[in-house]
């Protein structure tokens, strides 16, 4: 122990022995904080205490000396535990640093910017419930003013999900997506995921191509939470079809394609189950509540709308996010 701290302790002890005051105890508490800061082990404090007592009370009864020796012996175990804790703390800090780096890398898997398409307004928000996300989205230029949009939810959380996400990303980069239809893209992804992930891992995904020339959205789903189509004229929502097995379970699988036509001010809203399985006062949020939240913000530009919907959901769930949330909106401009 630092000689200065040692002297301070002895002085405090001496004052307290002479005339005990509440202030001394308060100072002792402060001193213990310094001990902890300086990483002084518990048995070292006891050792200093014994030394001080012996010096200040030379006639210390033999029995009391014996009890202090016993106490010192008992505290040695605590000292070892304290050191182990220190090592664990430092290991944890290292892991946190590593996760932070991984989370930063994961961000690079997502598109840098939202693409622009004539006559279409696109907004997206993806928020991780912890540092690493299991949600993924991507945009692919199919040429001829057609934009591919993929949104996926990888089972589980954290690092395994993030590693799996990078596989999806690089597979999509290698596929010649331009020449493939949504159903074919999902079929190819499924084959690769099925071969390369652990037996229990799976991914849900929706992939669609928005054709901005005739405002048609052609899509296929792989067990993904059904998105919504908002009809401005009717002011109502219909759910997207969901006839396709999750990715990674069956080797050969077909993904049927569906088509939705959009009129001016209509919108497609895609999300992950972090949105639909959010809980308000312990109960799952109703799909009708999500629809009314979308309706309340649909007049805003798409990016503002998805941010406002997420914020509203965050407020409703008392700022508790149990799962990653992604909301993507494609709106046909009026």
């Amino acid at each position: 122990m630092d000689i200065h701290l040692k002297k301070l302790y002895e002085k405090l002890l001496a004052s307290y022995m002479t005339e005990p005051k509440e202030d001394h105890l308060y100072s002792a508490q402060q001193l213990s904080k310094w001990f902890i800061e300086k990483r002084v082990s518990p048995e070292e404090v006891i050792n200093v205490h014994i030394g001080s007592v012996k010096r200040m009370v030379p006639e210390l009864p033999r029995e009391v000396k014996a009890t202090l020796e016993m106490l010192l012996e008992v505290m040695v175990g605590y000292g070892v535990a304290y050191q182990e804790r220190e090592q664990l703390m430092s290991r944890q800090r290292e892991l946190e640093d590593e996760i932070e780096v991984a989370a930063g890398l994961q961000q690079t898997l997502l598109p840098e910017a939202t693409p622009s398409l004539p006559g279409v307004d696109i907004g997206v928000i993806s928020v991780a419930s912890k540092q690493m996300s299991g949600d993924y989205y991507n945009f692919v230029d199919h040429g001829m003013q057609q934009l591919g949009v993929g949104i996926a939810d990888i089972v589980g959380k954290g690092i395994p999900a993030a590693l799996c996400m990078s596989m999806i990303k690089y597979t999509m980069d290698r596929l010649d997506a331009k020449s493939l239809s949504p159903g074919e893209i999902l079929r190819d992804l499924n084959t690769i995921v099925e071969r390369n992930v652990l037996p229990s891992m799976f991914i849900t995904m929706i992939y669609g191509v928005y054709d901005s020339l005739n405002h048609q959205f052609r899509y296929a789903t792989a067990g993904h939470e059904p998105g919504l189509i908002y009809s401005a004229r009717e002011d109502c929502f219909t759910s997207l079809e969901t006839k396709g097995m999750v990715l990674g379970v069956l080797r050969d699988n077909e993904y049927p394609e569906y088509v939705a036509d959009l009129e001016p001010n209509d919108a497609i809203i895609l999300f992950t189950d972090g949105v639909t399985e959010a809980r308000v006062d312990g109960k799952f949020i109703e799909r009708e509540t999500i629809k009314s939240m979308i309706r309340d913000h649909i007049h805003l530009p798409a990016q503002q709308a998805v941010e406002a919907i997420h914020q509203k959901l965050y407020e409703m769930t008392n700022y508790i996010m149990r799962d990653d949330q992604t909301i993507l909106m494609i709106k046909r401009v009026g």
Binding site: D153, V155, G156, L198, P199, S200, M201, F202, T204, V249, D273, E277, F284, D323
Partner: peptide, 17 residues
């Protein structure tokens, strides 16, 4: 009352096995 995707993954693992 509820099963999430991690729960489903256990069932998928069991199904495959």
């Amino acid at each position: 009352e509820y099963i999430d995707s991690t729960g489903l993954s256990v069932l998928i693992g069991a199904y495959k096995a």
